[in-house]
Each structure stands twice: as structure tokens, then as C-alpha cells.
Design a protein around this nucleic acid. Structure first.
Lengths: 218, 218
DNA sequence: CGGGTTCATGCTAGTCACTGTCATTTGGAA
DNA sequence: TTCCAAATGACAGTGACTAGCATGAACCCG
């Protein structure tokens, strides 16, 4: 992220859990979806091929055969071409569906395994590509904080919901923060050793959290 | 953060704990320090007065009576005009100086109170100004992730050091992540209620962590 | 106290992300 | 077909940031 006066923006993240997208019957809808996918697809390809900074939005536009204006209409910033996660909603639903007697962290772990276990190989590869890009490009890494903060808020609500506490309960928020923090820690460690299993490391880290983070237990 | 091809950057953060800056005897050195301070000072002032996005680097340069090039020479990006923390080193030293028998989280809490208790009112105000700016301006918030990741690494080392474990111990890293995560959670909550006591909230959140984050203990 | 070197600074001329506006096209409904 | 609204493109900025070069002040040596 550099040049830019992006101030009046704020990641949108469609408010909350999207209603699984309408059937998208209209031709218009389908065309839009196709355009959107095409743009992002070519963007990711170019970014991995020649680097994020080295790729201009104009090139992306050209590759997707649209005008630069259109690219910006679909993705408010260059960052957004990478920072779009479709798994969050699924994760949230998965957490909600865990049995109520599970402790928050356990529920999260279970949901994680469930969601990533069910995802098809192609999409998973896409997720990994995106993750690698995000974690290795400083600007993207930086741009992710807002999403993480968003995640903390979601998690707080979910935890509070399960525990029958007010939605902004400080204890729930602290726990949510810890979960996300553990996430970050695992992810940053992964950058240093990409050959490791990210999901596995995350799970292990959450296991520590589950046990209260007592160092001597390990 | 917007316009920009910042890629070849990477927050510097002088590697590790800086050696408390040499006496800076030379005239040149002193002049440089003065210029630097002046630039940052006027930047913070203008940012709070008229907003971050609404203030151009050119204005900052003009206010500090230097050329725009010079501003960029001192602060590689506009963000850096705000994102410079001098307290981190002090915090690290404070943690190191805590009695070895204290648990990591407790040591961190103690260090926090110690550092922020000793800081003079003027500087504290400065810190608060900066914190407010960072937390309320999306671009700055985003740019902070790298610093947070850096902090996790530091904390991991410190925790491992105290526990006599390898510097990259996963359990230590998970704990460090949780601590920083709790930090973020407290900070984001604070944005919504600026009248609250940030330090107090942080301390409370860390207290939860200390107790293993059991929701029912509260 | 000269004389050369070093280094901070300014200037000029880009590059590129992003924004706003307006005219044109195109899908969709009557 | 006929009209409306949304999607797109072309165009003209703004402003962050970079690279290269010239200058003058500060430092170093003798």
C-alpha cells in the first residue's frame, strides 16, 4: 500500500453473514459474477507470476479485458483483489452448529477442521495461494488488520452467544482476541517455514490455548 | 494507505533494542535530530487538526520548513509519521527486569504498569494522541499489523528466555500471540468507548488471560 | 586556516493508485 | 419495440512516492 488517499473507505465485508447469495438468475447478475471472477483470477495469476508491486492495475484490467475503472468498481483497492475471503461465513456457521456444551476454543477448533476438511482441493489451493501472497507482501499483511479486528468482533459475539453473556462481554472479547492472536502467531511462524502445515500448526496453537496456555503443560 | 507502490520497504524498527542512541555529539547529528522531531511534531499536529487523509505531505513539509523530499527521507511513508513508537524498547527492558519467578503474563502486566507509570505526562499525552490517530484512521490501523507481528516475535523470545525454552518454542509463540491478541481486542473496544481507560482495560484483559481465559471465573 | 570529501537537502521529472464526471452501451421489464 | 437503470469506458485530475542530479554546509585532514 502506498500512494494513495484511501481514507474514506473501510473494508466493507458485507456487514454480516451474507445470505448465501441469491440464485443470481438474471443474465446481468451472472455476467457481473463472471467479470468479477475473471478480474480476480487474472489478478492473482499476475501477482504470483510477476509480483504484487510489479503488477499494475492497468495490467490486470487488460488481462481481464475490462477498463481500469471497472476493476476499481469491483475492487475498491488493489489490496482487495487479494484480500477477499469467502470462508469466513462458512466458519461462522460451522461454529454456530457446534454442540453447545463444547467450550469456545474447542468449538472453534472443531469448526475449523470441519470447514477446511470439506473444502475441495481446488479452492484450498486458491486459499493457500492467497495466504502466501498476503503473508509475504508487507502491504497486504498490513491491510489485513482490519479484517482481523472484524474477526475478533465476530468471535466475541459468537462466544458471548454460547456463554449466554452480553455481546460485548469483556471476558469474551479477551478470549476472542487471544484466539485471533494465536492465529496471527501461527501464521507468522508459517511464513518462516512454508513447508509446515499451516492448519496443523493453527490447531496445535489452539490446543495450547484450550489448556490455558500453561507453558509447563506442553 | 492508498496510492503507492511501497513494496520494497518493510518497516525497519531498527532490528532490535536500540543501544539508547549515541550522545549525538556532532552538529550534524543534532541538526538531524531536530529536523526529524520538527517534521514529526508538525505532522501530528496537522493530522489531529485537519485529519490524516486531508493533510498532504507537502503541507507537513511546508509547516516544518523543509522540502517534501526531505520528509520522505526521514519517514519513508506518510504512515511512519505516526507509527513511531519509542516505548517498545523500554517495555522490553522492563519485562526483562521482572523477577524470574513471575509468570509471563504477570511479568508483562507488571512491566506495563511500571513503564506507563513512570512516563511523564507530556509524553503520555503524545502517546495517547498517537494511539487515537492510529486506532481511528483505518490506513494507520492496517499499517500496524507488521508492528504487532514484530511484537509477537519479541514477546516470544522474552517468554522463551524466561522459561528456558528455545527461542521459537511454539507454546511460547502461542502465548505471545494470545497476549498481543488480547491487546488488540482491548484496543478495538476502546475505539468504541474512548472515554474508558485504555491502560486499565488492557490490564483487565491481561488478568483474564492470566487466569486462563475461563469465562466462568470472571 | 585551506582543501577535499561527505552528506543533508532541494529540485525536476516521472510512475502509479485512486477519484469524479460524463457519455455510451446493454440487460431487463413493460 | 421502448424506456429505465445499471454497467462500462474515456478523460482529467490529485497526491504518495521514487530516481537522479546539483548545491552548499559540515566534517576531516594536514
Amino acid at each position: 500500500m502506498r500512494r494513495g488517499r484511501r481514507a474514506p473507505r473501510g473494508r466493507q465485508h458485507n456487514g454480516h453473514v451474507p445470505a448465501d447469495a441469491a440464485p443470481a438468475t438474471g443474465l446481468r447478475e451472472r455476467k457481473k459474477a463472471r467479470t468479477r471472477t475473471a478480474i480476480q483470477h487474472h489478478a492473482l495469476r499476475l501477482f504470483t507470476e510477476q509480483g504484487y508491486a510489479a503488477t499494475t492495475v492497468e495490467q490486470v484490467a487488460e488481462a481481464a479485458d475490462v477498463s481500469p475503472s471497472t476493476v476499481f468498481r469491483y475492487f475498491p483497492t488493489k489490496d482487495d483483489l487479494v484480500l477477499t475471503d469467502e470462508l469466513d461465513p462458512a466458519l461462522i456457521a460451522a461454529i454456530r452448529s457446534q454442540p453447545a456444551e463444547l467450550a469456545p476454543v474447542s468449538a472453534f477448533r472443531a469448526a475449523l477442521r470441519q470447514v477446511f476438511g470439506a473444502v475441495d482441493a481446488g479452492l484450498l489451493l486458491d486459499v493457500k495461494t492467497r495466504a502466501t501472497l498476503i503473508l509475504s507482501v508487507p502491504e497486504l499483511r498490513a491491510a489485513m488488520l482490519d479484517q482481523l479486528a472484524q474477526s475478533i468482533t465476530w468471535l466475541t459475539e459468537l462466544i458471548a452467544e454460547r456463554a449466554g453473556r452480553p455481546a460485548d462481554d469483556p471476558a469474551a472479547r479477551a478470549l476472542a482476541g487471544a484466539m485471533v492472536g494465536v492465529w496471527i502467531a501461527a501464521a507468522t511462524a508459517w511464513v518462516a517455514h512454508p513447508e509446515d502445515d499451516l492448519l496443523g500448526a493453527l490447531d496445535t496453537a489452539l490446543a495450547y490455548l484450550e489448556r490455558g496456555l500453561a507453558l509447563d503443560v506442553s
